[in-house]
Design a binder for these strands. Structure first.
Length: 270
DNA sequence: AAATTCTCCTGAAGGC
DNA sequence: TGCCTTCAGGAGAATT
């Protein structure tokens, strides 16, 4: 399930293959995504050159000659670089063809998005209200502390709120809270600044390490070359309820917070 | 305003 | 073995 490290891995993986390349064809086999894919997409994209491949939050942005193509992988999406003759498989919804190679989007659950944008992407309604990048300079413990004052929401929900900080999904939220010794259910407004500094560092470190490993593959995430991500084996608490805590050995617990499964050690996290 | 719930969808897993 | 039910999850929209 793509979170920030998986999207970053994909971004780095596809960039060398598509940067500077001209779109020769676009094939849309399934328009029904989170938003319907524009009927005119093939005509719009054909002939344009990829100027840059970047990421904002979990959105991938292909900067073209006359606008940006926004791609979101939802929770089951993946992008692969394949030869254009490679037969599409089930759920391969979109091909963006660059001569011999094609950028192929697969998304079984179709929670993803493919959107052509002619306004500057950071001004688009989907992107303009997003919080800072967790690996960027605007994110810190002090920032989180300020944002949390007066709020009763569980800390796990706060750090998963993309208006506060982007890219922290369900897996890495549990991991970062474990690393910083904070119980995921704790009210955000009742956590000290000192602990927020630890939390911000934990968010940064867990995301950075996951990027190094090529992301986390639980079910269906694939890197651009088809390999899985290798961070799953580093997960200390996610989906490990009942197993011993890696630090103290007491059994890990599972709890549902905001309709999302969450995992923690009741002894190490308060 | 903030918090919670709903919604999209399919594949995996569990029950009988 | 096979059918049915349940669940997971990103994040915008709708509701409380």
């Amino acid at each position: 399930m793509p979170e920030l490290p998986e999207v970053e891995t994909t971004c780095r993986g596809i960039a060398p293959f598509v940067n500077g390349k001209v779109v020769t064809d676009v094939i849309v086999r399934e328009h029904r995504m989170r938003q319907p894919i524009a009927e005119q997409l093939p005509q719009i994209l054909s002939g344009q050159t990829v100027q840059a491949v970047t990421r904002r939050a979990k959105y991938l942005l292909l900067q073209m000659d006359r606008g940006h193509l926004l791609l979101h992988l939802g929770m089951s999406g993946s992008l692969r670089i394949v030869d254009k003759e490679t037969p599409p498989q089930r759920h391969d919804h979109v091909d963006i063809v660059f001569g011999r190679i094609t950028l192929r989007l697969r998304d079984p659950r179709r929670f993803g998005m493919v959107l052509w944008m002619e306004v500057p992407p950071l001004q688009h309604p989907l992107l303009c209200k997003l919080g800072p990048e967790p690996l960027g300079d605007d994110f810190s413990g002090e920032y989180l502390y300020q944002k949390s004052r007066g709020r009763r929401v569980a800390i796990k929900q706060l750090i998963m709120n993309s208006l506060i900080v982007v890219g922290v999904g369900n897996i890495y939220a549990s991991e970062a809270l474990f690393r910083s010794g904070i119980r995921p259910t704790r009210a955000a407004g009742h956590i000290s600044e000192k602990r927020y500094v630890r939390l911000a560092q934990a968010i940064r470190s867990v995301l950075a390490e996951a990027i190094k490993q090529g992301g986390t593959t639980l079910r269906d995430f694939q890197q651009q070359d088809g390999r899985p991500g290798y961070f799953a084996q580093q997960l200390q608490v996610y989906a490990r309820q009942g197993e011993p805590c890696p630090d103290c050995g007491s059994p890990l617990k599972a709890v549902t917070i905001g309709q999302r499964s969450s995992y923690y050690c009741a002894k190490c996290q308060r």
